[in-house]
Design a protein around this nucleic acid. Structure first.
Length: 505
RNA sequence: GGGCCUAUAGCUUAGUCAGGAAUAGCGACGGACUCUUAAUCCGUAGGCCAGGGGUUCAAAUCCCUUUAGGCCCGCCA
């Protein structure tokens, strides 16, 4: 009897259930720091982290590592680089000078902000730098095997991917002692005893490369399966580009088995994240929202929620405008309900506020100073538990308004009575002034203030709409604005009355 | 050219592996709160499951095909 059980299993738990529970698991993630590390890249690390947490929850021993592929060569002068970088093309990014001069290398320049960002996201992997791994000699035996079995590897690559490699192909690329590039140098001889090869670089230089000292690296399609075997990787998320048949996972699976005697990790393929209206994110094309950019406007748990709620094989079209507000609302709801698995995987131990982000967006547009933010919030009945958390949230709201908010989410408090209000019809002016009188002594509460509008309108014999518009014009010079009662509550009695009474002139 | 993935309500999406009455959220619409004004609560509508064909008692689900978009096969992680 096949009963169809439709209990919802979160993708991270489903993946975690695929691995052996009785053996320690190593989840590997990795990115090449050749440019700004963006939201799309972050999906890899977050995906790994969620599976890691799902494994721990199942009681499986697990570790998360982040492998920084800083030994990869710079491929071209990206749009964000100066032309001077032309001369570093082909160099390992760990050996290229930092663009800003503050970091040890080009690689660290991009790695540093990324590593601090993932800390904020409550992701704490062990960091492995490929350049250090190669130079430590930990791959020596495997590189030796790869060189010895170059023909076998070549055959696997040709069979599985269906392409043709040139005569004399080897999986090892030395770093040329003369030009510094990881080039397709021809390997002339291999001294197994002393783990060295002699090569002839396209630049003309002939030299010796000692692979126990990291004087060269394996080509990606061999490098990857080699690392699985050395590090003991059992689960690995990677982009869909690696996942196609004949792609590097397919070839890696066979290479790691036949050359290195190791079983390929459980694959987790993930889709790209695109920017709504702007297309996919590519650091090389300059279409990028870095993780730092994101954390400037979104709390880390919300970012985690975005990844947690979307299965890895689904494309995410991220909308940093109104879509972001929706996402935050959705997260807040999930947080209040407090029981979904998505929420569990998203929440982190960071300081929280109870203030809805949408409200904060209004508040920061009224407040001129940080202190004013606190005053307004207190007036609106919010308890300030953690001042720093509130200020963080206020800053995110400000940055959001500045960079991503659509025009109709923004308003500006006029310094004095706007012309459009001064020229208001006399009935409306009278009603607005009447409104001011009604609320002068009433309780300063949003719903009270809001309802009083209707009273004033009725008394004046005009519609509520006209009074609303009149009041918005008085403060914003616009016909619409944030929900009035809540807006005035935030603004405060004194300022409200002062401005409204100017309408009587 | 060869291979693969994706397509479900206006939007986001569950369900596809193991075929058995189409999920949910947002939005829209309607209502409630003395109330159209970025809130809350309640309710309603909205889908030939991309198109076509087939297998089956039964298809979003399996097979074939068409269309649209994406990815890989250029050693690029």
């Amino acid at each position: 009897m096949e009963e169809k059980i439709h209990e919802k299993i979160h993708w991270a738990d489903a993946k975690a259930a695929q691995v052996a529970a009785d053996a320690p698991q190593l989840i590997a993630t990795g990115i090449t720091p050749s440019g700004p590390i963006h939201l799309g890249n972050m999906r890899e690390v977050m995906t790994g982290d969620m599976i890691y947490k799902a494994l721990l929850k199942r009681g499986v021993e697990a570790e998360l590592v982040y492998i920084a592929d800083d030994f990869d060569p710079l491929r071209k002068v990206y749009p964000f680089l100066s032309d001077e970088y032309q001369k570093y093309i082909g160099w390992p990014v760990s050996d290229i000078p930092c663009p800003c001069g503050k970091h040890k290398s080009y690689a660290e320049h991009f790695l540093d902000p990324f590593l601090s960002a993932i800390e904020e996201l409550d992701i704490h992997p062990r960091i492995i730098r490929t350049s250090e791994a190669y130079r430590s000699g930990m791959f020596t035996e495997q590189i030796k095997e790869a060189l010895i079995h170059a023909e076998d590897i070549k055959k696997i690559l040709e069979d599985v991917s269906g392409r043709k490699l040139e005569e004399g192909w080897t999986p090892y690329y030395p770093i040329c002692a003369a030009c510094g590039t990881i080039s397709r140098a021809a390997i002339l001889s291999h001294d197994i005893e002393n783990h060295t090869v002699t090569y002839k670089c396209p630049c003309g230089h002939e030299g010796v490369s000692d692979y126990s000292k990291g004087e060269g690296k394996l080509v990606w399609r061999v490098d990857w399966p080699m690392r699985w075997s050395v590090h003991g990787v059992t689960v690995e998320p990677f982009g869909k580009d690696h996942a196609s048949p004949g792609g590097s996972y397919d070839t890696g699976k066979i290479i790691t088995k036949e050359i290195f005697g190791y079983n390929a990790p459980v694959p987790v393929t993930y889709e790209w994240i695109s920017l709504k209206g702007k297309g996919e994110m590519h650091s090389s094309k300059g279409v990028v929202l870095t993780i730092r950019d994101m954390l400037d406007i979104v709390a880390p748990e919300v970012l985690r929620y975005l990844i947690a709620k979307t299965k890895p094989d689904k494309t995410i079209a991220f909308d940093p405008g109104m879509g972001l507000l929706r996402l935050i609302d959705e997260y807040d709801k999930a947080a209040v309900a407090g029981e979904s698995r998505e929420y569990e995987l998203s929440k982190i131990a960071s300081p929280q506020t109870t203030i809805p982000f949408r409200h904060m967006v209004t508040v920061v547009q009224i407040a001129r100073t940080d202190d004013a933010v606190f005053d307004i919030l207190k007036r609106s009945g919010y308890e300030i538990v953690d001042k720093d958390a509130v200020l963080d949230q206020a800053n995110r709201a400000k940055v959001w308004l500045e960079r991503y908010a659509p025009e109709d989410a923004k308003f500006a408090l006029a310094e004095s009575l706007p012309e459009v209000a001064a020229n208001e019809k006399s009935e409306v002016k009278a009603a607005v002034v009447a409104y001011a009188k009604i609320v002068t002594d009433s309780e300063w509460k949003a719903d009270v203030l809001h309802n009083a509008v209707y009273d004033a309108a009725e008394a004046a014999g005009i519609t509520g709409k006209e009074v609303f518009t009149g009041i918005y014009r008085a403060f914003l010079g616009a016909d619409r604005g944030p929900r009035l009662g809540w807006f005035l509550e935030a603004l405060g009695r004194e300022e409200t009355l002062k401005r409204l009474l100017e309408m009587s002139l």
